[in-house]
Design a protein around this nucleic acid. Structure first.
Lengths: 137, 137
DNA sequence: ATACATGCAAACACTTTGCAGCACA
DNA sequence: TGTGCTGCAAAGTGTTTGCATGTAT
């Protein structure tokens, strides 16, 4: 007994902090940055450190419990949805929103030459102006 | 006289440094980072500063003389090509290559709801393993 | 009991900025 | 001759890491 067979993943503990970080991402539906998550968790648990938030966001993203959205030129965002989908980023205020567009499972088939790359995933980020920034002119 | 009509762009000078930066990007065909450009320019002009390289890369990118490729989680890359195209980034070594795939001019038409965003451009970054990293296991 | 997690601070990578002096147009 | 550019250093942003202590299992 006591052999977890081929379990290659490390054991992982359920700490108060990890739970709070997960709940924060689930409750913030605006693609929070690590800083947003930190502030949110700090309300309930003032002693948490930034490092712990970063470490837990990474663990949760690896597990697939949250989705990490790597936005060019800006802090990483985290998303409570965990199916792949696309995003748009405002070039003026930097806000990020989900885009309602089917996931292009087969998009890599359109590649004629990726120089031997084994493509595993892709990401599309649209850029433009959000409604608020459009009005501000 | 002396009115340049509607020229809204600021006057811009051709300094030795700016020329060297542009030539460096044109000669380096491997999506150099600002650090790569800095090293390259430094060979000819040892007194150049990093700040000048950053400032000139921004000017040249705004002008359209070079293409800035904003890679998530990594330094910006610069590309001597200036037509839009896509890139792939190795998740192991971080290298970036051009992908030979037609530019999807109409991709934004597939968006059902972008929450009022005025989409202006898009970027696709493929992720996977480059040939060298595939072999290393 | 012990491997994993935490908090702190320092380090890190990349980029921007304030400022005094310089140089292109 | 004056605005734009340079070099330097310092600061800024976002993230990671070393280490001693703490805690879930």
């Amino acid at each position: 007994m006591a052999n977890a067979a081929k379990t290659e993943a490390k054991a992982s503990r359920n700490t108060v902090q990890r739970t709070l970080v997960l709940n924060a991402v689930r409750s913030l539906h605006n693609h929070p940055t690590s800083a947003d998550v930190f502030e949110q968790v700090r309300m309930k648990h003032p002693s948490i450190s930034r490092a712990t938030v970063y470490r837990n966001l990474s663990v949760l993203a690896e597990r697939g419990d949250v989705l990490r959205v790597e936005v060019p030129n800006g802090a990483d965002r985290y998303d409570f949805r965990n199916e792949p989908h696309y995003h748009a980023k405002c070039r003026s205020c930097g806000c990020v929103v989900d885009v309602d567009m089917p996931y292009q499972t087969d998009i890599a088939r359109g590649i004629a030459d990726a120089h031997g790359f084994a493509v595993e995933s892709h990401q599309i980020v649209f850029s433009g102006l959000c409604p608020a920034c459009r009005q501000r002119g």
